[in-house]
Design a protein around this nucleic acid. Structure first.
Length: 541
RNA sequence: GCGCCCGUAGCUCAGUUGGAUAGAGCGUUUGACUACGAAUCAAAAGGCCGGGGGUUCGAAUCCCUCCGGGCGCACCA
């Protein structure tokens, strides 16, 4: 909004010949670090100083002169510092803000800004060979909230989990299940080499015996067992995701992809494009011609397709389903693969459609000391164990407090504490406090005006409420959902500050009424924000 | 060796694509409940933004180069 006003002012000034007619790039508007500098600011004048060959302060003054702030909720624009233009919200923003929040509590903050985007968001995609573990927890929280934020900003998003239910690992899983089944029949347990020795297969083995009895020998039977295990494990994975508050729209089977002939079609297309060649008994793709360090094998010398072939076929399928944008959330261990895949997509003639978000590693710590994340047998700590220990709210909030590009230390001790040092409780407490206030009695039916919310704390709180839609949009555009945890803390802080200084009940009826409205609106926005984060907003704590 | 992520207060981390006096939480210190939830609030101390060069009106941010920490470099998935 401010952006376009400033842009219009520049255009008018240029038309009037007061500013040189140079091309103007995107005008950036920011929230100043120091509230004394106003509610918003733009550095457009300084950005334009060089191309216009004018002093920033003169440009800023000209912009201000041509600025039209009518119908804008902005009251003043001033030139400050080396050439900033600072804006202050006028009283006009108060009533519309409260009205927007209270009038549509379920949608405040939502917009249609990204309605033109149709995103396939793939995340987690953990191997279906064991329960979801703590390594997936960060990506799951990140992906789920990213999807929610994108949707809130108007984008169409499909959340997809790629199930790697094809290939050698399923065979090994089947063999591992057989070993557990034999164990159930009284024979000694013999772990499969490179297999899965986790306890979780014991239950699966019991269920299998009950349903089917002792399986036949042979590789075909092993594969059958593998599929059975995948189905059982994935059922558990879905359940775990559900209790973690993570929703998927689609589980995409790699096996079905192969059965449908998608991999064969992909290879045919690559060949038709001249992007493959035979060498050493294998088929290679020319990824090095598209930015990868070397060419890669797509069909092994035993004529089975590699994972890369399957993944390329999968992403080709995503494009065929009509998505304009493919976003993959992966762990740091897939880093080198991203480069190969991007090269492969270029080879397919679809450059720039796939974007990888690499979520960095996390560590579990207990105060100062690191906690081992794998248990005996090499299995990682299950996600369910983390959730059982610290709770879903703390788990998700903590994972989302940091940028995904930063490694993260998850402090189990801090997450469990129910005190002021725990940011989750700080935010939730603000919400509970508000609900407690609203519970006290029915609001008196009196006329009140939002314009009278004049104390600095009241005004500041309103400013935070007004900013929520921008925060959501910003988080969506940048794909940085962690911004919202910060916003939640800032908003909660603004409320606590307001609450300590001002009484709500016991004042004149119109004062009580408008402060209640303010508190209620704050509660709504807190709940909206926490909902995006997948964190509950309790009425009592 | 090559590629990527990270290095900012004692600790964990933000820093809005190069802007104003570098911020927050925790921890530390000091204050504030005979009124709506003190799980809160107010204030203080704490920094060569890993080091060194460069780019320009201006650098935590961009470039180069070192130093440290992490991850990855398969006819595995």
């Amino acid at each position: 909004m401010i952006r376009s006003r400033v842009g219009e002012a520049i255009v008018r000034a240029q038309a009037a010949g007061e500013l040189p007619a140079v091309a103007v790039e995107r005008v950036e508007v920011e929230v100043p670090a120091d509230p004394a500098h106003g509610d918003y600011a733009t550095n457009a004048a300084m950005m334009l100083a060089r191309p216009m060959r004018m002093a920033p302060s003169r440009i800023a003054q000209t912009i201000v002169r041509y600025l039209d702030l009518r119908d804008s909720s902005l009251s003043e624009a001033t030139v400050a510092g080396p050439g900033f233009v600072n804006f202050r919200l006028g009283d006009d923003f108060k009533a519309p803000t409260l009205q927007a929040v209270l009038g549509d509590p379920e949608h405040y903050g939502a917009s249609r800004a990204l309605a033109h985007r149709h995103v396939l968001l793939e995340f987690v995609s953990a191997n279906p060979t064991g329960p979801l573990n703590v390594v997936s927890a960060r990506a799951a929280a990140f992906g789920d909230t990213l999807a929610a934020v994108l949707e809130c900003a108007g984008a169409r998003v499909v959340r997809e989990f790629y199930v790697n239910d094809a290939g050698a690992q399923v065979l090994r899983l089947g063999q591992s299940l057989r070993a557990r089944i034999l164990e159930q029949t009284g024979q000694p347990f013999v772990p499969v080499e490179q297999g899965y020795a986790g306890e979780y297969l014991v239950d699966v083995a019991r269920a299998y015996l009950q349903e089917h009895g002792v399986p036949q020998e042979g590789a075909d039977a092993d594969r059958e067992l593998g599929s059975y295990a995948v189905a059982a494990i994935m059922a558990g994975v879905r359940q775990d995701l559900l209790t973690y508050g993570v929703r998927f729209d689609s589980f995409f089977s790699e096996r079905e992809l192969h059965e449908r002939g998608a991999v064969r079609d992909l290879l045919a297309e690559l060949q038709a494009r001249g992007e493959t060649y035979a060498a050493d008994g294998a088929v290679w793709i020319r990824t090095s011609a598209h930015g990868d360090d070397k060419d890669r094998v797509v069909v092994r010398s035993d004529s089975t397709p590699t994972y890369l072939a399957g993944d390329l076929a999968y992403h080709r399928d995503k494009l065929r389903r009509g998505f304009t944008e493919l976003v993959d959330v992966v762990g740091p261990d897939h880093h080198s693969h991203t480069r190969t895949m991007e090269a492969g997509m270029r080879a397919l003639g679809a450059p720039g459609r796939l974007r990888y978000l690499v979520v960095q590693h996390m560590r579990l710590v207990h105060g100062e000391t690191a906690v081992k994340m794998s248990k005996r047998g090499g299995d990682f700590v299950p996600l369910t164990e983390l959730v059982a220990e610290v709770g879903r709210d703390a788990a998700r909030f903590f994972f989302l407090m940091r940028a995904h590009t930063s490694p993260l230390d998850f402090d189990l001790e801090l997450a469990k504490r129910e005190g002021q040092e725990n940011p989750v409780f700080y935010v939730q407490y603000a919400h509970a406090r508000i609900q407690s206030l609203l519970r006290q009695a029915d609001a008196p039916q009196v006329n009140w005006s939002a314009r009278d919310l004049d104390h600095p704390e009241e005004r500041q709180l309103l400013v935070w409420l007004a900013r929520f839609p921008e925060e959501v949009l910003w988080a969506a555009e940048r794909m940085e959902p962690h911004r919202l945890t910060r916003y939640a803390q800032d908003l909660a802080g603004a409320f606590h500050g307001f609450y300590t200084r001002h009484r709500i009940w016991g004042e004149a009826p119109e004062v009580t009424a408008r402060r209640l409205a303010l508190a209620q609106a704050t509660g709504i926005v807190l709940r909206r924000c926490l909902a995006l984060l997948g964190v509950s907003a309790p009425d009592r704590m």
